[in-house]
Write a protein that binds this DNA or RNA. Sequence first.
DNA 1: CACCAGGGCGCG
DNA 2: AAAGCGCGCCCTGGTG
Length: 840
Amino acid sequence: MNPVVRDAVRDPIGCTDCSLSADGLDNCITAEGNENADLLVLTRLPLTPRNRAELLTYLSDAGFDTKTIAITAVSKCSSFGADASKADIKACRRHLEAEIDVIKPTWVLALGSEALLTATGRSGIMKYRGQIFDFKDRPHVKVVATISPSMVFRNPGLRGGFIADLSYINRLSRGEKLSDALVPKRIASVVSKRGLQALADELKVCEGYAFDIETTGFDEFKPDGRIISLALSTWRKGDTGPRDCWVIPLYHPESPWRTRWREVLERIAPFLRMPKKRVAHNGKFDLRWLRHFGARFSLTFDTMLAAHLLNENRPKSLESLSRELVGVEPWKIDNKTLIDERLVKVVKYNGMDTWNTALIYFVLRRQLMEQRKLAVLFQRMSVPASEVFTDIERRGIFCDVPLLDERAHIVKQELKAIDSGLMEWVPPRDEWPKNVKAVNFNASNFARWWIFDWLELPITKRGKGGAPSMAEGIMSKLAQDHPHKVLDLLLERVKWNKYDTSFFAPYQELVDENDRIHTTFKLTGTVTGRLSSGKGDQDKVTGRVQNRGVNLQQVPRDPFVRGLFGAAPGWAFIECDYSQIELRVAAFVANEPTMKYLYNSGKDIHMTMAMRMTGKPESEVTKEERKKAKAVNFGFLYGMGWLKFISTAWENYGVVVTEEEAKAFRKAFFDEFPMLMKWHSRQRMMAHKYGRVESPLGRARHLPDIHSSDHKVVAEAERQAINSPVQSFASDMAVMALVRIDEELKRRGLRARSVGTVHDAINFECPEEELEEVVPLIKWHMENVPLEEWFGVHLDIPIVGDCKIGRRWGGADEVENEIVTNPAKFGQWLKEHGYDAVAA
DNA sequence: CACCAGGGCGCG
DNA sequence: AAAGCGCGCCCTGGTG
């Protein structure tokens, strides 16, 4: 450490301020480096020589002269194993302030959330990285933050962004400006008829544009939804970046179009269709709004989808991608709602969004073209899927509202009865310990004290923090060994409470005036390429999730809940599931002969497992038992050990399995399918060698943890290497099938449409008279995605889609495969099942 | 009040 | 020695 700083700052007696000082290897470590440094780098803990060297390499790569900087930490003691707590960091603050007063840096570079918090008092490193603040209590010192190098080490997906941040901060500390090409010369605010005409003329001749809208309100389908402004950055053929930037103020209070904003939008809409390239960042959001207000056009490129396909681990916001890929400066405005912001600022913000979208478009497009299979996935799946899900989200799914209200009432009644039953057993208040504040039947301090201290029931499992587990499996075992009314009631309550808070209440709140419930699908929400479903998008400005809908991928299978959804009167509900898709894909990628034989001869592997587990013949195995066997198959397939198998067998079957039996069962599974073991080894080997694995369709999963020194972490990455290609392949195929089905339905002028997907299942609503044509069409496209033609992948395993037709989700009748594929039989089947309105 | 991590549980 | 994978939402309790 620097002797000048040390002697000026360090407590000569030996500091005992923090908890680490007692057993610390070295106490009160002060800054390393130049005592007159202009830039003081602030980390969480004092760095080891190796980490310090690494950080200096990063800094020097980013253009810093490492002789002119100093490095210090918010916590000033180093100790094995022990981490600095918030109190420790607080205790060290006076030393840090003393250092700053001695060194007098102009800039502090805060690395990581603790450094940011200490320097600025703000938490949320991903939100504040790249922004400039004053140092707390030292306002003459400027602070700029980015993520910590250890985060980058753990996840190389963050490396690009980290280096870009450092370069940006370097330019900032030198007072350098950005290159001219990275900022628009001017942003044209379109506030007159002549301006509109000029924009329309440009749209007639330009090759492409990136666009973005700003909106007010949460949902495009709610009456208070308005579009505040629409921005575009255009380019001509042969350009390598955006040329002009345009913004049309719409509903903004200062906009001249405020009262006629919809009219203006309608007038410009036809011109938006003209250019060949139409680009947006998460365009699904913008298209939803624009379509709602009558401006209909489609995308040809989405920068968020491209960025995710290229690297599933990196942050995907426009802000961070722009910084990572082209090194632009932050342009965010720090305001809650744009409608309250001055128009000039909104115009600049909205315009910069599109300018930067255009900038990263050119980079991402080039990167994508370099990987043929990825480019095909992008073209055939990502972009058209974004289009399909725009409409699925707008459409929503029909919900039987009277039934919803009736059942929501039942749920409340059940809860009420259980709660009053439980109240009779609540111990008197003066017996409660200090940390118990109120009666709470959820997994709370009260409930844990009540069960495990007051009732003295045994604790079999604890969580990370040492709190006794109150998970369902644990509690039901407890109830079996120590019968008690309270346990029965609590177990019963979990289900009703979950129904109430997670399902019925949100459904009632979010069902729209047309009795439909919406969701938001994230096409970039998972590392494997599956879609995720949820309440809404993150608001770009506030960072909060817009509460526009519900998660439609976790609707309970219980008909009491799932049966609330279905088809509107006069329509039918179609569910089409891929049969055992991941197991089939695994058989393909592992090239497993026994599995292939079973599938090619129409056998059911889950049934085989169920028969083994229960010892029953096929005819006696129940649906429930087969479903549990499925869990066992997937468990072993993806690397489950014998110990977990013991608990699975107990929790699912109530079967006690000994250690020996469990090992033997696992061995039997792999003996039955000998190539699976070899496939597992191959995936592990690939992950170790390349740090990534790839699906047969070209989708990559990066696994930086494979190089960890922690064996558990490595083992986890190895299992991910096994699972990812299978999950990705299955998911990509399902999405491509949906895209093709949607295209075909539109091409034929049919009204049937998808209302959502759940990974390997696609749901549709369909006018009764179209069923005869639509169901076979869906089935055929699910089973015949042109993988050979598009990816050169020849599947030598049959892919089967099972179709169900009914009025409600989960309450439908399965149609046998040979019936769907036979028009005469299927027509008959439809009549027999009450679908009279079939086409002549 | 906002934010966070962890527990628990719904789905595939 | 020990190890299913992939998600999102609600709640609790702690912190600033």
